[in-house]
Write a protein that binds this DNA or RNA. Structure first.
Lengths: 108, 108
DNA sequence: TCTTTATGTCGTAAACATACGACACGAAAT
DNA sequence: ATTTCGTGTCGTATGTTTACGACATAAAGA
């Protein structure tokens, strides 16, 4: 990459892109759904639920944490991963606005 | 990548991930918005509207075409890019379903 | 104490993404 | 006829992602 020109786009578009990237892998969608379904904040159980190696799952968790869509706080000895509902709501709103703004017209 | 294990996830999650990836770059969001705003199917005008090199924009257009969110048909001598409203609606629906399914609970 | 379990870090290979210049080519303008 | 314009392809450098094994470590259990 010769230069990162991402900074030239509006902040709201950039943030939408960040969230889109976070959910741009089936494993990460699966992780989010798993976290939402298991009302309890689980830890390495995620590894059992997702058909990928432990390290890979951990890596996907890290990507989600980087996007701030989830938190991973140490709760005693176990790590408690859960969805950051503020950020999750922000994502929903950004997507909603974005998708509303884009009104496709079939022209060809 | 040692293996592509994506096929082990449900089709609907995979498709959502494909669309998310398509819009996971600010330039591609900008392109979609530009296509939606310019009611007419434009061609290389996109290059002028997006602050990136012509080849890079073409590449982003190709990514969007691969996701089938846009079409790029040759219309006489000019190429007519426009949003594929069927796919766009499918994306909206998939995102909507997905985001509805995931109900975050702050637990930590 | 020794082992197992849960967790995490590090390294690394292969693939993919991003950005762009150089070149090609046909149609339109001069 | 020659140049320019719109379009596209190819190559290529660099960075990021995905996947996973190997190792580290601290607490729990035998």
């Amino acid at each position: 990459m010769i230069s990162n020109k991402s900074e030239i786009f509006p902040a709201e578009q950039q943030q939408a892109a960040v969230y889109a990237k976070a959910i741009s892998h089936p494993a990460r969608i699966a992780i989010l759904r798993f976290l939402a379904e298991s009302k309890v904040c689980i830890t390495g159980d995620i590894t059992d639920a997702i058909p990928l190696g432990r390290t890979t799952v951990l890596q996907h968790l890290q990507v989600l944490k980087d996007s701030e869509l989830i938190t991973g706080d140490i709760d005693g000895k176990r790590v408690c991963y859960c969805i950051n509902s503020d950020r999750y709501d922000e994502m929903k709103q950004l997507f909603d606005e974005l998708l509303k703004k884009i009104n496709p017209i079939n022209c060809c």
